[in-house]
Design a protein around this nucleic acid. Sequence first.
DNA 1: AACGCGAATTGACCTCGATCAAATAGCCGG
DNA 2: CCGGCTATTTGATCGAGGTCAATTCGCGTT
Lengths: 226, 226
Amino acid sequence: MKTLRLNSSDRTVLLGSRFFEKLSAAASNAVLEGAVVTNHEEHDVLFHQDETVDSVFCVLSGLVRLYRLGKDGREADIAVFPKGELFGESAMFLGNRATASARAIGSSTIARLDSRNLRSLAETHPDIAQALMELLCRHGQMAEDCLAEDRLLTAPQRVANYILGHCPDGSTTFSFRLPFQKNVLAGKLGLAPEALSRAFSALRRSGVTVKGRMIEIHDRNALERF
Amino acid sequence: MKTLRLNSSDRTVLLGSRFFEKLSAAASNAVLEGAVVTNHEEHDVLFHQDETVDSVFCVLSGLVRLYRLGKDGREADIAVFPKGELFGESAMFLGNRATASARAIGSSTIARLDSRNLRSLAETHPDIAQALMELLCRHGQMAEDCLAEDRLLTAPQRVANYILGHCPDGSTTFSFRLPFQKNVLAGKLGLAPEALSRAFSALRRSGVTVKGRMIEIHDRNALERF
DNA sequence: AACGCGAATTGACCTCGATCAAATAGCCGG
DNA sequence: CCGGCTATTTGATCGAGGTCAATTCGCGTT
């Protein structure tokens, strides 16, 4: 794992993330002070659950998933982060301990923002503190959304919801390409890959067809009624 | 629902919560400025998911559960808050919209802290912002914990974990009284009451006995191995 | 265009937990 | 102490999803 400085395209990706969108250039530059970039191979672990972490991370390219490990070696995905997303920020306020492990999906480039710098800035910059609180809330809501879906919905319903979340408003027919392999989507939805596959099959009669990563929706209304 | 001012025993409960523990008296008083108290009957709904809320809430007595509603009318519990716990705080940073509904379990007395006041204070008091971020992180971690347990553990394993979380360090035998009805614990663990009951039965041979709300653990090590 | 390999799909089987119903326990009020 | 009512337990049944294995698909490389 090589450590490099941010280059200008790294900065562009970072500054394009939602975290920075309301921050001034000066505040953003202060946050990025001392940030470094690391490159990871597929399956590399960035940090383990309960490990001390002194950075907040951002995906510059690739994908990262957070997961918890069961005693039997199984992994339960907690979240998946695409390019432009920050993660690992809650450790700053939980004794610098990671709440989950993080692993790269495919080759990934990750920015690491210094936690100490960020906390210090948050103390003197209300706008930075605000951006952090919003980030914490979005991530908290994501976990709640997963929990509620797991507890309330069947596999096909979860997949239908996922698809509808990618459907632009107003469209009855639509197609999109999954940004990752299906086994990643399965993990995100709390399913075994076989169950995901069966859920897509079940959705065929509600107008969903699948070819490789391409998902086509022929009747949004049928999907909403699923 | 009658709205009252905080009395001194209300203040004592509030100031005893973890949120306030590191705040100065001056900061705490500022946070409690304009706070009111409401009394709720069993099953009263405090707010509905997606509803606009302009308070952060604290349980002064009783219990409150956050839940999501499925299309079929079923409810999935997200969290249960006992006396002294704050909740509903993430709405402040998510467009003032509640991420879940809240309902009183039994008669409950609830304090409402003014969101606008709290946000404003957080902007000028780094210690208040810090307390808020810590609160957001604890709640995020709770949701992650539930999600991971649901995805990784069987019902008896979840119950065993819950029991172990109430077992003081170093004790091999222990007993405690559930602070709520068993059907509340079932909801918290994402189980039907019958499944909880069966899980307790399954744990009998690992040294757990149950009489009403009293739970007795005869062999902590057996429970850890479950 | 063809080939190889890993991802995905499909089949079969099993287990866990939900649901519904009936019986029992235990708590509270009189 | 007794009775009533709700919570809890237990029994029976069923379905969803996990697991394991075999087959097929599709993507990438040559």
